[in-house]
Design a protein around this nucleic acid. Sequence first.
DNA 1: CGTTACATTTACGTTAACGTCAAGCACTCT
DNA 2: AGAGTGCTTGACGTTAACGTAAATGTAACG
Lengths: 138, 138
Amino acid sequence: MTDPTATKSAETLTIREMCDSFDVTPRTLRFYEAKELLFPIREGTKRLFTRKDRARLTLILRGKRFGFTLEDIRQLLGMYDPTGSNADQLDKTCAIARERLALMEGQRAELDIAITDLKAQLAEGERLLAARRRQAAE
Amino acid sequence: MTDPTATKSAETLTIREMCDSFDVTPRTLRFYEAKELLFPIREGTKRLFTRKDRARLTLILRGKRFGFTLEDIRQLLGMYDPTGSNADQLDKTCAIARERLALMEGQRAELDIAITDLKAQLAEGERLLAARRRQAAE
DNA sequence: CGTTACATTTACGTTAACGTCAAGCACTCT
DNA sequence: AGAGTGCTTGACGTTAACGTAAATGTAACG
């Protein structure tokens, strides 16, 4: 037992299980693999997604929601996974991370502005609506 | 003076002035006009951008930074500009705005998570780097 | 052993948001 | 009048991030 060749089941997910739990299509997962964002185990011809793949996918999907490109995300993922981290590779990755961080904090500030703006406009819009309803009720 | 046919200058900007002050290309402005996001005055063959256009462009560019599509943004702009706002049009626009608002607040929450995550990873990365430098100095 | 049910690869299609010519007006300067 | 500069309208090209279809494989079920 715990046969090293028996990589299947329990800890790993099939492509379908993966799709269901993350709400993505198989095409997307294969695409991410082609772009070297995920590295599922190949059991014969099929793919088996590990815990690491799941963690990475979580980060990928999160990154996407902020307009980062997959290439941006691929570089950032180096940060979360220390494979092939020689000295100046890690250094570069840190530099990238600092840039992104600054970018994200700027984005947060802008988002706050946008939220405040939109709230104000919404209030105004609803004020107008209320006024019209009063008008219509006369 | 204040000739109503003389729509040019002072209050309005040419396409180039517009491009320079917003850091976009002419192509972009024409594209936005084609998509009905901007409505510059046509002085003969040329475009003249009004104060309203500038306000709209500010909002467009802001919206873009959060991954909203131009179509999303076009709908939101109805909110900020009450032209053609009959009763249930305004109502719909408010509904859209509320959705977006919820979306943006969710996005802000996630952004906070992502920032915290990235900060932690960055700290870890730099800790590793420091350790290696001590190693290399021995 | 046939077929049903997914998985896989290959490859072309699609959408958004512009970029990049090409060719022609419109002004202005000389 | 000629030259230059900038603006205009097509119209085709491009990139990212997948969608979708076709052909093949394969694992399990009855």
